[in-house]
Design a protein around this nucleic acid. Structure first.
Length: 571
RNA sequence: CGGGGCGUAGCGCAGUCUGGCAGCGCACCUGGUUUGGGACCAGGGGGUCGGAGGUUCAAAUCCUCUCGCCCCGACCA
C-alpha cells in the first residue's frame, strides 16, 4: 500500500475526549472516529487491525471445529418473549418498532436467535455436538460508554454457541473452547490470565473470563502468587481461617461512647484512636425474603456477589436509609450487631477469633467499645463474604493472593439447558426420546481486544503493535521522495516485499522526514525501513524495530531478506 | 439516574465574569526557500459561536428552556 493512496488522518494533538492510552492513540493514529457516544467509525488503518484480530479468532475457532454463521442483528420481540428475557433485559437492550408497529430489538447477544435456529435444523443426537459462531455487530445501550472502543455501545464480537446431548459433552465443548481461547490470546501476543468468574443468575458450574493484564483495566482480578488459582473480584474466595482457640481471658467490659456525627470507618478510627481492623462494619441488606445484616471488619470490603451466593438469594441490595433506621433505630453510620432482634446476622470469617471490637451503638451519635462475639451478640453464620485483597490466603494452596487489574476480552459460559428449555430446543436420543440440548456460549470482544493490545503495548510516541495484528508489517520510508535514487531503491524493496506476501506500507508522501518518522511511530508498524542518503552514498538502509528502538544498517541488496528474517523472529 | 465539567473552523484552545469587528496555534489551499525526528516566508479559504426562545439599539457573552459530549458514582448477559 502506498501512503499517498491510503487514508491515515493522524492527529498532532491529544483529543480532549480521550482519557486512556488506547482510546487516545486509536484516535491519534487515525484508526477510529467517533460518531456519537459509544459509536465509532473504523477507518482504513483501524479496519486492518480489526480484520487481522478477527482473522486469528476465526482461524482458531475453525480449527476447534466451530462453524461460522451470520445471525440477524435486528431481532423480533417474540423470540425474547419466548425465552422470557424481553422483560428481564433492561434498558441496555435498544428496542424499536417497524412500520407495522411490530417490536424488535438490536441484538445485544444471540442466544435466542441461535437456539431458535438450531431447534429448526437439528433433531437427532447424530447431528450433535455442534458449535456455531459469528463475528458480528452487537448493540448494548450501556449506561456509561467510555474509553473509546473499550466499552462502546456498538461493537464487534465473536460469539459462539455449543450444543451437546448431555452435561459431559457440554463440559468437553467448554474445555475445548477454553483451550482455543488460550491459543487465540497467545497468538495475539497478549499477556493474559483466565480467571474463574461468577456465573450470575445463569448458574452452572463454571465460567471463565479472559483478562488482558493492564493497569488501566476496569476489572480487578485476584491471583495466587504460588499456584494457578485466579478469579475475578466477584468470585475470588479466601481460605477460611483455622478455628481459633477459645479464650475469654481478656474480654473487656463494654463501654458506650459518644461519637457526635462520627460515622465512617475513617472518622471512627481517628476519633477513638483504634485501628480499622478493630472495627465491625455493620451493613444492612434487603434480599428476597426481607433483610439481613452482614458484618465485616473495618478494613475489609463486603462482596455482595459472594454474600448473595452464601445466603442463596437471587437479589441482595444495600438497604436504603429508611430500612436502616427502621431496623437499628439510628441514622446510617451507627448500626451495630448488639441488640439487633429478629434478623439474621452473617459475619465474615475474618472477624472470627477477634475480641474487643468497636461497633455502632444503634443509637444516634453512639458507638460501643469492647464488643465481643457470643457474650454481646450472636451470629447466625460465619462465612466468606468479603472481597479478597492483597495478602489474603489462597483458597487452594494457602499462599498469598495478589490483585491485578485487567481488561475482560473474553468470557466463556456453560449455559446448561436454560435456553433449550424455555425455547424447547430438543433432539431425539437413540431411544427416540426427546431431550433438551445442553448449551454453552463463548464471547470475545474484537475491538476491545485490539484496544487491550494497545493498552498493553505503547509508549509516548504511539502504538507498538504486536506483529500479529499490526496493520502493516513493514513501513518503507524514503526520506526524500524528490531524490530519484532513493525512490527507486524504496520502490524496488516495496515491490519485492509485497511480492513476498508481506503487508508493506510505502511512505511516498512528499513530507519532511520528521513528520514521516512521527507518523511511523504513532501508527505502530513493527519494522521501519528507512531509505535515505545512506542508501545512495553507502548502499545501506536502516531497519528499525518499533518495539526495541534498535536500528540495524543493512546493505540494500540484503534489505528484503533481513526484513523477512526479522518478522520471522518476532512471530 | 445523582454529582461535576464542557460545547466557539477538521484538531487543540482564548474570548463569556464586565454585552460593542469572531480570534490564536496546528491542520488545509497557492507560490517560494527547505528536507535523517512534527521547517520558514508570503498570500489564501474555512464559523448558523450546539439548538430554540427571551432581554437589549446591540448577544458567543445576560436570562429561560433544550440537545449533545466528557469525567466520577450507582448499574451491568
Amino acid at each position: 500500500m502506498r501512503y499517498s493512496k491510503f487514508l491515515i488522518p493522524t492527529l498532532r494533538e491529544d483529543p480532549a475526549e480521550a482519557e486512556v492510552a488506547s482510546h487516545r492513540l486509536m484516535l491519534r493514529a487515525g484508526m477510529i472516529r467517533k460518531l456519537a457516544a459509544g459509536i465509532y467509525s473504523t477507518l482504513p488503518l483501524g479496519e486492518r487491525v480489526i480484520k487481522k484480530t478477527a482473522q486469528i479468532v476465526r482461524e482458531e475457532m475453525n480449527r476447534a471445529g466451530a462453524l461460522e454463521v451470520t445471525l440477524p442483528f435486528v431481532q423480533p420481540a417474540e423470540l425474547w418473549q419466548e425465552s422470557g428475557r424481553w422483560n428481564v433485559y433492561g434498558k441496555e437492550m435498544l428496542r424499536l418498532k417497524d412500520r407495522n408497529d411490530r417490536e424488535f430489538c438490536l441484538g445485544p447477544t444471540h442466544e435466542e436467535v441461535i437456539t431458535n435456529l438450531v431447534k429448526g435444523v437439528i433433531s437427532s443426537y447424530k447431528q450433535l455436538p455442534v458449535n456455531l459462531y459469528q463475528i458480528h455487530t452487537k448493540f448494548r445501550d450501556e449506561i456509561r460508554p467510555r474509553f473509546g472502543v473499550m466499552r462502546a455501545r456498538e461493537f464487534i464480537m465473536k460469539d459462539a454457541y455449543s450444543f451437546d446431548t448431555d452435561e459431559e459433552g457440554a463440559e468437553k465443548s467448554y474445555r475445548h473452547m477454553y483451550d482455543a481461547y488460550c491459543r487465540i490470546f497467545e497468538r495475539l501476543g497478549l499477556k493474559f490470565r483466565a480467571v474463574e468468574a461468577d456465573t450470575g443468575p445463569i448458574g452452572g458450574n463454571f465460567s471463565h473470563e479472559f483478562m488482558v493484564l493492564a493497569d488501566t483495566g476496569e476489572d480487578v482480578i485476584v491471583a495466587c502468587s504460588n499456584c494457578d488459582y485466579a478469579a475475578n473480584m466477584e468470585k475470588a474466595e479466601i481460605k477460611p481461617p483455622d478455628d481459633p482457640e477459645k479464650n475469654n481471658i481478656d474480654l473487656k467490659k463494654t463501654e458506650r461512647v459518644e461519637t457526635p456525627n462520627i460515622k465512617t470507618v475513617d472518622e471512627v478510627t481517628a476519633f477513638l484512636r483504634v485501628s480499622p481492623s478493630k472495627l465491625i462494619k455493620t451493613l444492612v441488606f434487603s434480599c428476597d425474603d426481607g433483610h439481613i445484616v452482614a458484618l465485616v471488619r473495618g478494613d475489609h470490603e463486603i462482596n455482595e456477589v459472594k454474600l448473595r451466593n452464601f445466603i442463596g438469594c437471587d437479589n441482595v441490595l444495600l438497604a436504603d436509609e429508611d430500612l436502616v433506621e427502621e431496623l437499628t433505630h439510628a441514622p446510617r453510620g451507627f448500626a451495630g450487631p448488639v441488640g439487633l432482634k429478629d434478623v439474621k446476622i452473617i459475619a465474615d470469617f475474618g472477624l472470627k477469633g477477634g475480641t474487643n471490637f468497636v461497633s455502632g451503638g444503634n443509637e444516634k451519635d453512639i458507638h460501643i467499645m469492647n464488643v465481643n462475639f457470643d457474650r454481646d451478640f450472636s451470629v447466625t453464620r460465619f462465612g466468606d463474604i468479603r472481597c479478597a485483597g492483597d495478602g489474603d490466603p489462597c483458597p487452594r494452596c494457602g499462599q498469598v493472593l495478589e490483585t491485578k487489574r485487567g481488561i475482560e476480552v473474553g468470557h466463556i459460559f456453560k449455559l446448561g439447558t436454560k435456553y433449550s428449555r424455555s425455547m424447547n430446543a430438543t433432539y431425539l436420543d437413540p431411544g427416540g426420546e426427546p431431550n433438551h440440548m445442553v448449551m454453552g456460549c463463548y464471547g470475545i470482544g474484537i475491538g476491545r481486544t485490539a484496544a487491550a493490545a494497545i493498552e498493553q503495548s505503547h509508549d509516548e510516541n504511539g502504538i507498538i503493535f504486536p506483529e500479529s495484528i499490526a496493520p502493516f508489517s513493514v513501513l518503507v520510508l524514503p526520506v526524500d521522495t524528490t531524490e530519484k535514487i532513493q525512490m527507486e531503491i524504496a520502490e524496488k524493496i516495496y515491490r519485492e516485499l509485497t511480492a513476498g506476501g508481506i503487508d508493506v506500507l510505502l511512505d511516498d508522501r512528499d513530507e519532511r522526514p520528521g513528520i514521516k518518522f512521527k507518523d511511523a511511530d504513532m501508527i505502530g508498524v513493527p519494522l521501519r525501513l528507512t531509505v535515505g542518503r545512506n542508501a545512495v552514498k553507502g548502499n545501506n538502509v536502516d531497519i528499525k524495530s518499533r518495539k526495541t528502538g534498535e536500528i540495524r544498517q543493512v546493505p540494500v541488496e540484503d534489505a528484503v531478506s533481513a526484513v523477512v528474517e526479522s518478522l520471522g523472529e518476532s512471530s
